[in-house]
Design a protein around this nucleic acid. Sequence first.
DNA 1: ACTCCACAGGAAGGATTGGGCA
DNA 2: TGCCCAATCCTTCCTGTGGAGT
Length: 353
Amino acid sequence: MIADLRVFDDEFVPPDLLHRENEIEQLLRRFTTRHPAESDVLISGPSGVGKTVLARTAVDHLETQTDVTRVFVDSLGKTTGGILRAMLEQLPRGPNEVAQTLPTRDVCREIREAITSETIVVLDEGDDLPQTNAVGELLAMANVTVVVIAHDGTDWLSRLDVTDGHRLDQGHLELGRYGVDELADILERRARQGLHGEPVSRAQLEAIADEVAGVARHGIQSLRSAAVLARERGHRRVRDRDVDDSYEHARHRIRKLNLSSLPFHHQVLYAIIHEAEELSASELHDRYDAVSGDIYAGSPPQPLGERARREKLSKLAEYDLIDYDGPTRDRLYWVIDSDVEPLLELPGRMPLE
DNA sequence: ACTCCACAGGAAGGATTGGGCA
DNA sequence: TGCCCAATCCTTCCTGTGGAGT
């Protein structure tokens, strides 16, 4: 039944993008404007509605028609220097690797030197960009068109420097969720590309589209899960039961991938929260202090202070792995899916009392 | 109403890291 | 090899928040 699971990957760019024709046209119009300062774009919208794939499709299309150079940078967690270095490394005439310690102004100079033709840079996961100078530096470069992808466009613009913000506000494209029919069309196309013999019915695809409320990423992942579950269970076609179970299966898989992408400190904190079903900040810190001696023994990373732990906790929450509630004082933390096992074993718990 | 408390998260500065260079 | 420099990560210090105690 399963022909090619890569079709369901986030990175997969379909040959043509359904139900975003107007948006693609809008982007291409803006990219080809005669006024360089009017070509920059901010693409905003909720998670999983196809912001990245839209940008890719439009920019790829442009590349086939003009001699524009395109660069994609994942901005998540990167500093100004990190973003600019990633861009420089991807330029055709740029170096393959740039030293982390190269001063940012030198990186900018080298980017200018490496750019020979019109260049489009797509800054994906750009929510934290206003805290850096990267957007300003790039907007200041001639021959560079900036495309930023972020969740809340209005909030993003308000946090950016006013003149830069104005420029991107002019080219602000807000994407909404797909309608049920639209998303079902998209899923139908993916099913045809990734599965043999049409094993999923239109009604099932519509059920998925409805359940995920128009969020394409969740829909595509659920479709993948439904096919995987059907195969595991020896079904020749996807059954409704497989679809019903696919939502949680898909969310579970995404969380596992999220967890495994995080570094050591986050793993320690996740393991502690996972071990207790629910715990307060002070319990969390006590447990951390109790186990950190063993956990960090002989390893280069050293135990974190409480302030740094808070940063890691918000990252875990951002990755949909933990959640918390309550006012600052009585806040409780818990893991969202206790079936997502920690990758790290904690030393045995001391008996309480 | 006030003060206290526990905590979150911003700002500033220090320690560490690693490339460049004499 | 040792020094310099910039980036990064973390700590320290601090302010803000909202419930609890008086």
